[in-house]
Simulated assay, not measured.
Amino acid sequence: MIDCVIIDDEQHAIDLLLQHISQVHFLRVVGTATNPVKGLAMITDMKPGLVFLDVQMPHLTGIEMLKLISKDSHIIMTTAYKEYAIEGFEHQVVDYLLKPVQFLRFLKAVNRLWTIHSSLRPSTDQDHYVFVKTEQKGKLLKIDARRITYIEGLSNYAIIHMDDQKKIITYLKLKELSESLSARGFVRVHKSYIISLSHLTAVEGNMVRILNEEQPITIGEAYRKDFFDFINTKMLSSPPPDNSVN
């Protein structure tokens, strides 16, 4: 679990981050502040593992605060101004998020921190496993999360599809599964589907294709923007043409 503090002079920006954080199982908010001076005192007192820090604030800017915050706290900058990104990265921040912060972009940033955090503790194969409730009362099934290709939600239960075509029925709602698996490379693309990004093979219009699955999965309207915002962060762009005359 990573304790985090949010410092932003706009309450609605804090509220949005609180909403995002509530969907990530390894993050816990221990404090928020709209006043950067009070926020700095909070960080000094609580020593959180992560600080979400706005750039443009009265009395004390986020860039100025970077120089005062202990190196023990990781920083994710948030702002509406792209031009501050370079200066933020010079202070070795984890990431730089543009407002309004989209969930998938947020998830990419905190997963990067979780990777850093995990590298500081011994890693075991057990880190890849999850336990789910099955059809049989009182029985829990151990599953290697790396082998899950996608999950299909059906009312009060879900079908977990594995890479060997095996299907596992679990009495968990898709919301619960989404919250538990978001840090493991899974993303919800539809009210009825969660997919594994490692098993995603193609995006075709408003459909995604999953490894070894014949039928594509539709990207739901409510999830489309966040999904494509995330995809765009992975997009390779071509260099500009060389119009120089030899």
Results as ranks from 00 to 15, higher is better:
65 M>Q: 03
87 E>P: 15
44 T>K: 14
122 P>L: 11
133 K>L: 11
103 F>S: 01
128 H>F: 14
66 L>D: 03
69 I>N: 00
120 L>W: 02
124 T>I: 05
68 L>N: 02
86 I>L: 10
46 M>L: 15
70 S>W: 04
135 E>M: 10
93 V>H: 01
103 F>I: 03
55 V>Y: 03
45 D>T: 15
87 E>C: 08
81 Y>Q: 08
36 P>S: 01
102 Q>T: 01
135 E>Q: 13
95 D>S: 02
55 V>I: 15
88 G>A: 13
119 S>M: 07
85 A>V: 14
98 L>T: 04
46 M>N: 09
37 V>A: 05
58 P>H: 09
128 H>M: 10
105 R>T: 10
129 Y>H: 10
35 N>Y: 07
60 L>V: 12
59 H>I: 12
135 E>P: 05
67 K>V: 08
45 D>I: 10
110 V>K: 01
135 E>L: 14
129 Y>D: 06
90 E>K: 15
81 Y>A: 01
105 R>S: 11
117 H>S: 09
126 Q>A: 12
85 A>M: 13
129 Y>W: 11
125 D>R: 10
111 N>D: 01
104 L>K: 08
59 H>N: 12
52 F>I: 05
133 K>A: 10
49 G>Y: 05
75 I>A: 04
123 S>I: 12
135 E>K: 15
88 G>Q: 02
80 A>M: 14
43 I>M: 02
127 D>H: 09
60 L>Y: 06
49 G>V: 04
82 K>C: 11
56 Q>G: 01
100 P>C: 08
82 K>A: 14
92 Q>T: 12
61 T>D: 08
93 V>W: 03
92 Q>I: 04
119 S>C: 06
107 L>Q: 00
114 W>I: 08
82 K>G: 14
45 D>V: 10
98 L>Q: 06
112 R>T: 15
47 K>D: 11
101 V>C: 04
114 W>Y: 14
55 V>K: 00
54 D>Y: 00
44 T>I: 08
44 T>N: 15
124 T>C: 07
79 T>M: 07
64 E>T: 11
